[in-house]
Computed example of a mutant assay.
Amino acid sequence: MAVITFLSDFGYRDHYVAAVKAKVLSLDPQVQVVDITHAIEPFNIAHAEYVFGAVFRDFPEGTVHILAVDTQGCKRGKFHATKYKGHYFLLADNGLLSLLTDGKPELVVELKSDTPYAPSPARDLLAPAAVFLAKGGDIDVLGDRTNNIKQLFNRQLRLSDHAITGHVIHVDRYGNLITDITRDSIETIAHGRTFTVHFGRETIGRIYPNYNQVDDGDCCCAYNSEGQLCIGINKGHAAQLLGLGFDSQVDVRFYPGS
């Protein structure tokens, strides 16, 4: 049986997470449910896309993922099951699917429901579908195939011979600013040239292996495990201290010579 993961914006104060898990276990007590997080900011599709996109590929192919974020975000009450890169996603038609797959999911079905506008779609619709798929069920049994999904679009990097312009796409709990600028994009444009990173009123001329390579309170740039350029302050909260946050602009500028 495949693993089921669970990510939501339900938080940890109420019974909502337990209710979904109870439904899963009532259908199959042997299923393994792995929590990714339930601290996604309420209704925040961009937050969910970053967190889930950073980790789902680490799970084995065939894993089934319940993505219960902004589950009431579609007025038409549409929910989808999709297959993408060997994984199954179950989620509302709120644009998250298009962000995770760059608008190109391999296969999408619109979930059939006996109770339209269910008060708890994660419990009543997504959980049973997840158990069905985890036990090897055919996704086409869950509904009719569709190409009609809500489209949202990720920001694209602006690249030139001498600069990259990107944006902050996530602020983690330590206040580090994660950008959409990647190691690969910098190395491709640099061709061995020196460069500086510009954000707010700050300029950094070096990328460090990690934040503790600078003194406490100092700002630095580093790559995370996904190869994304990050801005942090050693033992400090960069977002608060720099006055930057989601969608703040970050520039990398390249200079002649090496």
Rank of each mutant, 00 (worst) to 15 (best):
L27F: 07
P128V: 14
H170E: 08
N148R: 15
N234D: 02
N234W: 03
H87Y: 13
L157I: 14
S113W: 05
N94F: 05
S258K: 12
R201W: 04
H191F: 02
Y88A: 05
T115R: 10
H47Q: 11
L67V: 07
V34S: 06
M1S: 14
K235R: 14
D140A: 13
F79N: 12
S248M: 07
T203L: 00
C74D: 15
D70Q: 06
T115E: 13
Q249I: 15
P105L: 08
L90I: 12
G11S: 03
K104L: 10
G192W: 02
A48P: 01
R145D: 09
D216W: 01
D251P: 00
I233N: 01
G53W: 03
D180L: 05
G166K: 10
N148V: 12
A163L: 04
N154C: 11
A122G: 15
Y255H: 08
L25D: 00
D58P: 00
V34Y: 11
R206G: 02
L157T: 13
S120D: 07
A68W: 02
P256R: 02
D93Y: 05
Q249G: 09
L96W: 08
R57L: 10
N212C: 06
V197H: 01
S185I: 00
G243F: 07
I189M: 01
F56K: 04
L126H: 07
K75N: 12
T194C: 02
H170D: 10
P29L: 05
D35V: 04
C219M: 02
T37H: 03
I204D: 02
